[in-house]
Amino acid sequence: MMFGLQMFNEMESLNREMDQLLCGLGLSRSPEKRNDNAGLRVKDTGVEYKVEASIPGIDVKHLEIDVLGRQLSLSAEMADSEVGDDVIWHRRERRRKAFKKSFMLPEEIDSEQVEAEYKNGILMITLPKAASVLPKKISVKAS
């Protein structure tokens, strides 16, 4: 099917070309973008860590979050897109392989209190710090 090639054409985008150029040089203008960190952001709010991962289109049934001490492991599989074999592919840029990430948080986590939410393709995990690492307030009795 020859005409298939002309069904669409990408518009020029200086932005993207710059990205590709910089990526080719081993640099990236938008570090959150493609390298395999999948837009992973970690924030320390004092009493808890908030971990945010951009992983659009995952199958929530195959999403696993494990906490062991200070280590957080994430693993997710992409949802099936049900594309038949008889289609003609023009672009295949989206992530296909499963997402796997494991890293150490600076402090111990209260693994019983971890909460996660997946919304609009962003996974947000709230990890409260273990009581043992939180600062203790010592009240002074006035005599």
């Binding site: 592919w89 023009h90 295949r92």
Partner: peptide, 23 residues
């Protein structure tokens, strides 16, 4: 600014564009 990653494929019926736009 992000350029969403896309999958584009053609079927007998038409064109399907899938774009990752997390958040």
């Amino acid at each position: 600014r992000f350029t969403p990653e896309v999958d584009i494929y053609e079927t007998d019926e038409g064109l399907v564009v899938m774009a990752d736009m997390p958040g």
